[in-house]
Design a protein around this nucleic acid. Structure first.
Lengths: 340, 340
DNA sequence: CTGAAAGCGCTTACAG
DNA sequence: CTGAAAGCGCTTACAG
């Protein structure tokens, strides 16, 4: 980014330095047309006043983080990862909360301007997505954005951190297949979440690899990653004429819901029903039986996102716009060989 | 604080403006004695460059928040309360994480200085405590501190926000007594947490009020507010020669552990065992059966803490150093009349 | 080591 | 509505 000063803006706008100064400070005595022209130029060039520049150089490095829209357990893990990494490298994290829906309605231009004014270095979003217009607003001001587990598909113009969802889904199903299961159901999370689609397709790939038909009635669309999806899904699946002997839930929260239903129905897990979750949250260790789960390295993902945003802010190029950390199948007590 | 500019410092130090400028920027060409004199004056007068001044006046209000050491569900509720309140009044929240143990080891002087330099307005701690020395460091710099649910007892020189733990504990036990229970056990959380002690004593007060003897074997010291305390406590309590017909758990997480054990033992909740939790986390609605719980208004507590810290920063006096918001017993499916 | 003087980028009162 | 000009506080090259 070139060093833009008032003089540069002024000459580009064809006005005097005084006029630019007035626009910046919102003083009266500037024609609307002139004001708009200068404003646009100010935004395009990403003008930073010497004070702001100085504040940024002197003050602590500050990164914005937007959470919201995911389970408390998931969010806390990512947050802890980011905070612990931030602490060691002396970065301050400004946290705010917004659902993906809220986010789309935010005026990114005003947001980015504000971040710039406050000397923020970059932005990390959790399980969310920005519109192209919003991303442009940040890019224009040289504010890097990194998304952890973006809802939409990974694109090259958006830095993102995720995990190997497809491989994780495949590992989960393969584990169940290796135990002898043939009737394996899938309970999905948010339909608009790319990670959910990848998990499902990993699951299907494993079935296909083992020569098992993917029955449509064994794929339940939960709509959310919450426990309620597990309750609804398990209820529906276990009432099928030929119920599954194993369920792969696309989140640990969903798996918790499944566990509740199984118990309410008097089913023993894993004897009557095997269950695999996804996320590897701390709560997976604490259920009875402890939950077999595909663990995402959520803390590492938080750390990686912070590192990426700082590297981008320093003008470095990322090796790849998309970072995928490895998932790991953690086998606990909720999976076993099918009874029949 | 008077408006100190370089000229004022220079005249007080008996040197030129140039020299002061050199000292500030650590440039060579200043005698050690001169440098020291100017440095001292700079510190004494609290010189703030126009850029810093501008940044602080222009910039957003920023409050520091330290989380850690409590369950994800609890923390997220408080965090959401603080963040939503902060959003509406345009305050930025800088979050960091530290266990109560970490916190005691931190050099508060350096911390407070840093907060001052970064233009922070105040500090909110969650379920934690500062030493007297640490509190003094913040007081000296005019940085207000508010603690949500402090570990130690409430003192007049520390602003804190909590809930009516004693009344909540009493309400829980009274509810169980009203249902006909006489053998009511208590599973406690952190022993060093004042709120835990208050809940226990509310519980005991209810028993006493109903003329029920408090049996020592019915009071289990879990040591933590986590699920493991519930597992250990329920296991011990249910193996007593005369097991309780109801358990009051001092946190929802503990109650979850109790629920697991009850199921593992084939006990029906609430027919064989009634169960009351404490906190009113979202997860309490999602268990099977849904958990009767003494709800703390965690989001409101977060909001109140933010409001308090801002009022203190504005130089206002709080009506009371200790704010206690009302708990509310939310009756769900985990409590009923004892079978026998 | 020191400071008068020129210069920096920005702001503002004011003449047109 | 506009901009030349004076001024702001700070920085810096340079003469002493």
């Amino acid at each position: 980014m070139s060093r833009t000063d008032l003089a540069a803006i002024a000459s580009q706008a064809g006005v005097s330095i005084s006029t630019v100064s007035k626009v910046i400070h919102g003083r009266a005595g500037v024609a609307t047309a002139t004001r708009d022209r200068v404003r646009r130029l100010l935004a395009e060039t990403g003008y930073v006043s010497p004070m702001q520049r100085r504040a940024r150089e002197t003050g602590p490095t500050m990164v914005d983080l937007v959470i919201g829209g995911v389970s408390a357990g998931y969010t806390m893990e990512v947050l802890q990862g980011i905070l612990s990494a931030a602490q060691t490298i002396d970065v301050d994290v400004v946290v705010s909360s917004a659902t993906p829906g809220d986010l789309h309605r935010i005026d990114a231009d005003a947001w980015a301007t504000r971040m710039n004014d406050s000397g923020r270095t970059g932005l990390i979003l959790v399980t969310s997505q920005l519109t192209a217009t919003q991303r442009a607003a940040f890019r224009q001001r040289g504010l890097p954005v990194v998304v952890i587990d973006p809802l939409g598909p990974a694109t090259n113009d958006l830095a993102s951190v995720g995990s190997t969802n497809w491989a994780g889904g495949k590992a989960a199903a393969e584990h169940l297949i290796a135990l002898g299961h043939r009737r394996i159901a899938y309970i999905g999370g948010r339909t608009d979440a790319e990670c959910n689609v990848a998990r499902l397709h990993g699951h299907l790939a494993a079935l296909m690899g083992a020569g098992i038909d993917a029955r449509p009635e064994y794929i339940y669309d939960g709509g959310t990653f919450g426990r309620e999806a597990g309750v609804a899904g398990a209820t529906a699946l276990l009432e099928l004429p030929e119920p599954p002997t194993a369920i792969f839930a696309s989140s640990d929260s969903i798996a918790l819901g499944v566990l509740e239903v199984a118990r309410a129905k008097g089913l023993d897990v894993p004897r009557d029903l095997s269950l695999v979750g996804f996320d590897g949250l701390p709560l997976a260790e604490q259920t009875l039986p402890p939950l077999t789960s595909v663990a995402q390295p959520l803390r590492d993902m938080g750390r990686a996102a912070l590192r990426s945003v700082l590297r981008l802010a320093a003008g470095e190029q990322l090796d790849s716009a998309r970072i995928e950390l490895a998932t790991e199948l953690v086998v606990r007590g909720s999976t076993g060989a099918p009874a029949r």
